[in-house]
Computed example of a mutant assay.
Amino acid sequence: MRRIDVIAIGFGVFIAGGVVYMLFQAVGFDQISAGIWSQALLVGGLVVWTLTYLLRVAGQKMTYNQQIQDYKDAVLQKSLDEMTPEELEKLQKEIEQQ
């Protein structure tokens, strides 16, 4: 993620907090209650986002892990492409024996 993306997301969250605060006031909450509930929603959203991040880390579904797997697959495919038909046949027999 680029630096400008992080700034834009932070600014968006800031604006969303203000909009939620104004919506709570429009519904009829006083200033203190609207502030508390808008902060509670923003903190709850942050906690949920953090949990989804931790789940992706635990499940190894991060971009880095996917790039490593793609690289390993490409290296394996290249070595298979460079094998002669005799070598491929020998490899296939070894795999069938196991």
Rank of each mutant, 00 (worst) to 15 (best):
K78H: 12
D81S: 10
F14V: 00
G59H: 09
M62T: 13
I68N: 03
W37R: 06
S33T: 11
F29H: 04
D30G: 10
Q25W: 06
L51P: 04
T50E: 11
G35T: 05
D81R: 10
L55E: 10
Q39V: 07
V43Q: 04
A26Y: 14
M22E: 13
M22Q: 15
L76A: 13
D81C: 01
Y64M: 05
A26M: 13
D73G: 12
G10H: 04
Q69W: 09
G18I: 08
G28W: 02
A26K: 14
Q66W: 13
W49P: 05
M83D: 03
A74E: 13
Q60E: 10
L46V: 06
T50N: 11
V19R: 11
I15P: 05
L42N: 02
I68L: 07
Q67S: 05
V47I: 13
S79Y: 14
V43D: 02
Y53V: 08
K78R: 14
M83L: 15
G18S: 03
G45E: 01
Q66A: 08
Y71I: 06
V13F: 15
V48K: 05
V48P: 07
A40P: 01
K61A: 10
K61W: 14
G35I: 04
I36P: 00
Q39I: 09
N65K: 15
Q39D: 08
I9W: 08
A26F: 08
K72G: 00
D70G: 03
Y21H: 04
Q25Y: 01
G35N: 00
G12Y: 02
L76N: 07
D70N: 11
D70R: 14
I15C: 05
A8S: 04
I68V: 13
I36F: 11
I32W: 12
Q66M: 08
M83T: 02
V19D: 03
Y53G: 09
G59V: 02
L54T: 01
T84V: 07
I32P: 00
G12T: 09
G59Q: 14
G18P: 09
D70A: 13
G17Y: 02
Y21Q: 01
A74P: 01
M83V: 02
G45Q: 03
D73Y: 14
L41R: 00
T50P: 00
F14S: 13
K78V: 00
G59M: 12
K61H: 14
K61T: 06
V48I: 13
F14D: 04
Q69L: 10
I9L: 09
Y71K: 10
L55M: 15
V75K: 08
G28Q: 03
I36V: 14
F29A: 07
T52G: 00
I15A: 12
S33I: 05
G59K: 14
V43R: 02
M83K: 15
G35E: 03
Q31C: 04
Q39T: 12
Y64H: 05
V20A: 09
F24V: 01
A16F: 14
D70I: 11
L41V: 11
F24R: 01
G28V: 04
V48L: 14
A58K: 12
L76T: 12
K72W: 06
G12R: 02
G44Y: 04
V19I: 15
I7R: 04
M83Q: 10
L23Q: 07
Q66N: 06
Q25F: 03
G17I: 01
T50C: 15
Q39H: 10
K78E: 10
I9K: 09
